[in-house]
């Protein structure tokens, strides 16, 4: 068991997500940066879907009442075990009675604490992910609070043999240097003028303080809609469409764009104009409020190739840790 002695701003239990329920309005939830989540689990010998603690902007402090192997992956967060600094992206041993204290994020926005055996909350619809908007899953459907006691699963065999094994530097993302987010434009982008579409990929976008697990609200160039007589049922605003499904990663344009993330609203009446490719949703999730980014237009084949390349990297990391 681990006890939360300081929760941080927004720390939630997450795995790779909850699927098959999008049509009733249930978003996947799950780790916003699945790459860092997966690597954390590899380091401690878990299945990649084991639940970790996702910490946003600020780390937490956790007291262990048993010996465990842990790993911290994602945004750079200085961390100590009983005041001794530890490395990130490395399997580290925590002993019973010790406190793992994690500070705020400097390079990136989110880090994942993987613990051998995983965080053992009750699965809901086959997932341990937290969906705070409705209060479902994870630990009591909410972000962690001081005094919460998290049960742990049985550690995988040989977990302690992994202590000291680390991810090679070449595989560790430098989140703050990634400012190009790849997008497959389309969906209802016929609603925007050509000049506006052009501006979307040439001018910078700034992450607003509202950006959260539901959506990343961005600020940038003014959007311009193609004037039309609104179709039946759409509503009167030029940004309105007949309510439709929103892909995870899609960019909706109520005026300034919102990129829908893991706790996405699953549908609604605003035009969607493109979708951030699956690999780059994880990079976008590592952007902090006020940071700048650019949208880069790619096609579906580029998007699949990027996904395949990331899977090869994950396989290489996994192999290097065996």
């Amino acid at each position: 068991m681990i006890t939360v002695s300081r929760p941080g701003v927004l720390s939630t239990v997450q795995d790779l997500g909850r699927f098959g329920q999008y049509h009733i309005g249930m978003p996947p939830s799950g780790a916003m940066d699945p790459f860092a989540h997966r690597v954390g689990n590899y380091l401690v010998g878990n299945d990649e879907d084991a639940a970790t603690i996702e910490m946003t902007y600020q780390g937490g402090a956790f007291e262990f009442d048993e010996d465990r192997v842990v790993a911290l992956c994602g945004a750079t967060m200085a961390a100590t075990i009983d005041d001794e600094p530890i490395n990130m992206w490395e399997a580290v041993s925590v002993e019973a009675g010790q406190t793992l204290d994690i500070q705020y994020a400097s390079n990136g926005a989110r880090s994942y604490l993987a613990v051998a055996g995983g965080i053992d909350v009750e699965p809901l619809m086959d997932s341990r992910s937290t969906y705070t908007l409705i209060g479902l899953g994870g630990y009591e459907g909410r972000s962690l609070e001081e005094g919460d006691e998290l049960a742990l699963g049985a550690p995988p065999e040989g977990a302690t043999d992994r202590i000291g094994s680390a991810v090679d530097d070449e595989y560790i993302p430098d989140y703050d240097s990634i400012d190009s987010i790849r997008v497959v434009f389309g969906l209802c982008d016929y609603r925007l003028t050509d000049a506006c579409k052009e501006r979307m990929t040439t001018e910078p976008w700034t992450v607003t303080p509202d950006a959260d697990r539901v959506g990343y609200r961005l600020e940038g160039p003014e959007l311009e809609f193609v004037e039309r007589e609104q179709p039946f049922g759409a509503g009167t605003d030029q940004s309105n469409v007949v309510d439709l499904g929103y892909p995870v990663g899609s960019i909706q344009v109520p005026q300034q764009p919102i990129v829908l993330m893991q706790d996405a609203v699953t549908g609604g009446g605003y035009a969607t104009v493109g979708t951030v490719i699956s690999v780059d949703r994880g990079y976008l999730a590592q952007k902090r409020t006020h940071q700048e980014l650019y949208f880069e237009s790619v096609n579906v084949d580029d998007a699949v190739a990027a996904r395949k390349a990331q899977q090869e990297t994950l396989a290489a990391i996994r192999k290097s840790l065996e």
């Binding site: 389309g186 469409v241 892909p247 990663g249 979708t275 699956s278 579906v300």
Partner: peptide, 13 residues
Amino acid sequence: FGGDDHVFVELDE
């Protein structure tokens, strides 16, 4: 295409 993992089909506006 919605990224690499969705297809959206608009039947009518």
